[in-house]
Nucleic acid binder design. Structure first.
Lengths: 333, 333
DNA sequence: GTGGTTTCTGGGAGCGTTCACAGAGCGTTC
DNA sequence: GAACGCTCTGTGAACGCTCCCAGAAACCAC
């Protein structure tokens, strides 16, 4: 296969010094004479040495890498704009601390096993788990190994690990109230992803805001936060009650689909029907009229979760963090 | 920190057998008695042994992991639906071959250095490089190390590595011709991402199809394949020539932005202006009317690039692969 | 019984590092 | 001039695993 790579011994020989000295130079330690340092650097260049990280990890017992585990069904990887932001946010925090972010995607049971092996194998010092479902086996595996880890979100039934999340219940309650405040009489919801905490909580918040006025017939459910769910869901709601005049969609993508369905049905937004979403993703500004929605600090969620892992790595206590959301009021309601 | 993990020796002691036998059991080799196998398995469960991958990699000189390097500006990670598909496609191929996909994102110069270290350090047996720009330093680094690698796409000025790509020139030429075939007289283009091969080639294909009718005043350029670029670009084209009746947008996201701009300007699509895109991403079906576009097999590109790397790993020759595109003709032109 | 093959097990060597320690050299202080 | 402290360097011993060889044990055939 590949030609044998130069080792620290080759460098030592070429420089006429010992292994130890080379190691000290490579790691930038003190107690190396200027002379020796230069000789080593020349030798490194000469033999083309690069340090073998696997060997280093073996003795230092750490890898300076953090895994970010994405466990999403196929389609959502494209539809959900939050994932990209979370990824970049986490990368930023880790990069600053000089840790390498390693993203592992789980797309099949086979992946699940291999990723678990990867985690256990000592190739990773900690993990950020994104979008775990309730009772996710990979989350259990992480806890089992005792790997420092943190969730983005905090599904039920998962081990007691710190998390970075928003208060979906409160945020959903807030925007629904605001929608009701525009004088709507018949308000429905297109709920999604009830197999995870965000979906459940947004529904709970909607319910709380509606109080007496809550009518289960005006709630439809879909498995994923997608445009298609919003489109179909809105059509179904219109069929169930043509007098509907307000909708809370569980995400911006869902809201966008709902808006298209409304407009195709000849309803004006916001005059006839007011519509609000959730996420403040790029969808929100792209809709006509622009979407009133809840801003979710996706990048910050990633950053925070990464910091929670780093804290554990440094032996500091780390506890859950709930981040603020804000209602962005625009033209759709 | 974490409690010391059980090693292969602990298992050997617990089972009353030797290191060698335990290793044979763990790796599923033959020449182990049923008796010994059972004893080892019991001991593994008892002491909670998991193999240390770093140590294993050190001696076997391989990691069974392939890196996928994403070097994208911030915003594109959300806008470009191809990246998700490429990721999943690559993961599928690697998963089958029992390799772990490790995604590394580059978002700053600091990342660039760290990723290069990661590649060099022996933590990865090969790499798939997505969306490298012309003369990308990381691509050069990969070639320099001699790591088996493949590109998705094939930017100019990058080292001589195999790639999986589509023929952007031909595909752009084909869909532009089709657009011209609907009898349009004044056809423009919203070009994007001219710093990479795909952007350049789509423009070249457009130009080839236009032939005599090519008018540089009807081409606008934007740095990224975004909705916003399409929106602004279309407005600019309308100002330059209100009689414009056809547009080729460099991607579906761009086309979607252009369509919104057209509709806001009171033009009917496709009656007044025909519009075609590129990618056949989820954008295409979401537009009203649905977009005529070029289907780009994004998942297959990822799969193919991964296979090119695997082939190199097995010592087989691997040469560039150009995949087929097909024109999807819908309602927008 | 002898010789040969096959199955199974143990343990030394080595993968490329870091770490801890020993010791050399040199200057400073009492 | 002895004692002490710094700076600098070399080396043995790990880290946890796989590989390979030697040899024991079991079986078969003559």
């Amino acid at each position: 296969m590949r030609a044998r790579r130069a080792t620290i011994n080759d460098v030592a020989d070429a420089a006429g010094l010992s292994r130890g000295t080379v190691s000290r130079v490579v790691n930038g330690e003190k107690y190396v004479s200027a002379e020796a340092r230069m000789a080593v650097e020349a030798a490194i260049a000469q033999v083309g040495y690069v340090r073998n990280t696997a060997a280093r990890n073996l003795v230092t017992q750490e890898s300076r890498a953090i895994g970010l585990i994405i466990h999403e069904p196929h389609s959502l990887l494209f539809e959900d704009p939050n994932i990209g932001s979370i990824l970049l946010g986490a990368n930023e925090a880790l990069s600053k601390a000089d840790y390498q972010l390693v993203t592992l995607i789980i797309d099949s049971d086979r992946d699940s096993r291999r990723v678990a092996d990867h985690l256990r194998g000592g190739l990773i010092d900690g993990a950020v788990i994104v979008s775990a479902r309730a009772s996710d086996p990979i989350a259990a595996a992480v806890a089992d190994i005792g790997l420092p880890a943190a969730f983005v979100g905090h599904p039920d039934g998962t081990p007691d690990l710190p998390y970075a999340a928003i208060d979906n219940v409160e945020a959903a309650r807030a925007i629904t109230s605001r929608l009701l405040g525009t004088g709507r009489q018949r308000v429905g919801m297109i709920a999604s992803a009830l197999d995870r905490d965000s979906g459940q909580d947004r529904l709970a918040g909607f319910r709380a805001a509606m109080g007496e006025r809550y009518d289960p017939r005006l709630v439809v459910e879909y498995p994923l936060y997608t445009y298609a769910a919003g489109f179909e869901g809105m059509q179904k709601l219109l069929r169930r009650d043509p007098s509907i005049d307000g909708v809370f969609a569980a995400s911006d993508a869902v809201a966008a689909g709902a808006m298209t369905a409304l407009q195709e049905a000849g309803r004006r937004v916001p005059e006839d029907v007011g519509i609000v979403g959730f996420d403040d993703s790029s969808w929100a500004l792209r809709c006509r009229p622009q979407l009133s929605t809840v801003r979710q600090p996706a990048g910050l969620l990633g950053t925070t979760a990464a910091e929670l892992v780093l804290a554990q790595l440094m032996g500091l206590p780390s506890s859950p963090r709930v981040l603020e959301t804000v209602v962005m009021w625009r033209g759709s309601a």
